[in-house]
Write a protein that binds this DNA or RNA. Structure first.
Lengths: 198, 198
DNA sequence: CAACTAAGCTACAGTTGTGTATCTAATTCT
DNA sequence: AGAATTAGATACACAACTGTAGCTTAGTTG
């Protein structure tokens, strides 16, 4: 699609995708704080001038990369299986969190310099996702169908799964496995909505 | 103890405390990634040479500052009030998390460059604390006294409170208030240990 | 094929941070 | 009081990154 044909010079879309990828890789390696135009350019094997033609600083590049990253897959609650659907929702969250985009967002959220700029353009796209559309989608689905009282859909309950996954990742530095996701659902979410095991 | 007397030049302990404070202030403002000897020195109003005499790079200074920061207050479970003690434990956690040391640790944990070095010397002092000694202390206390079955002390239950506080802080950027702490205890922790309201 | 666009290359001056070194003078110790 | 420390004030060469600018040339478009 891009390599191997006679061309020696990338342009447009292709080049930009390479730069986006470079920005995400770079932030993963050095963190948002040490992100530089130079580093991104070097990694993308393109001159800095190409970057400056489009963006004014490294965080701009990163935000643009995030904006163009694949959207997060949404959980699609299915066949009357609340427990299974919750686990699946958390699985999707983990998958996203360890994607280049997810890791970049994590970095941005704790960076004093860029946390503010995040609010502007990206809240719609990235924040909405991060805010907890994973288990919340599933929980709302089953509450509407009367599997448990809708009054239990408080912020605590809606955040529970994502919060525990996040803490695991921070503590352990690696994604939780199937067993841990099941633990979270069985020992925290289900009890909190009054379904202590079934 | 230090200001106002005739002295014009800080030495030893006093100077070091100023440098530690500068490092913590600096990391709060620019993040771990942009921490520099220069920045710390400027903020502490001391020449860089003074820093290099003791530390070899900015992260060393920061780790040393953390090591010498006040230890976290531990929750002391008291008069047969599980709910109140849990809320108090979370209150202590929030207090620590928003202290200079807490903010610095948060920054370090998500910085690719310094996350590794953290493991070495500081795991004992700072990690142990962060790992969740807040609600865990309280929960173990009451489990031992038979207020609820000890089998429910799983990692999920022990992390629940801290996880939800952390998520609140990341999402909202501000400390949770009393109402939120109560929500966490009432809607997540107590149900998870089988005490759904009383 | 000609004209245009935009990537690639190189250079440059300016800024910030790095380590090191040297000298001075304030504070402490004996 | 005199000696030993050690903070404070420079200064320096080096490196990385910044923006900007000029030029060349590959690729696209009419």
């Amino acid at each position: 699609m891009s390599d191997g044909d006679g061309r020696t010079r990338r342009r447009g879309e292709e080049l930009i995708r390479a730069i986006h990828a470079a920005a995400l890789a770079e932030v993963r390696e050095v963190g948002v704080g040490r992100l530089t135009m130079d580093g991104i350019a070097r990694r993308a094997a393109t001159p800095r001038s190409t970057l400056y033609r489009r963006w004014s600083d490294p965080v701009e590049v990163l935000l643009d990369a995030l904006y163009h990253s694949h959207p997060v897959e949404e959980p699609t609650p299915g066949a009357d299986d609340l427990r299974g659907d919750l686990i699946q929702a958390l699985r999707l969250m983990v998958e996203w969190a360890f994607s280049p985009a997810g890791l970049a967002v994590a970095g941005i959220l704790t960076d004093p310099g860029s946390a503010a700029r995040m609010s502007e353009a990206l809240q719609e796209k990235v924040f909405a996702v991060r805010g907890g559309t994973f288990t919340a989608t599933v929980l709302r689905h089953y509450a509407e169908r009367g599997h448990f009282p809708a009054e239990r859909l408080t912020w605590v309950v809606l955040d529970l799964g994502e919060a525990l996954v996040t803490k695991w990742v921070i503590d352990k530095g690696c994604p939780p496995g199937e067993a841990e996701l099941a633990d979270i659902v069985d020992q925290a979410i289900l009890p909190a909505i009054g379904l202590s095991g079934g």
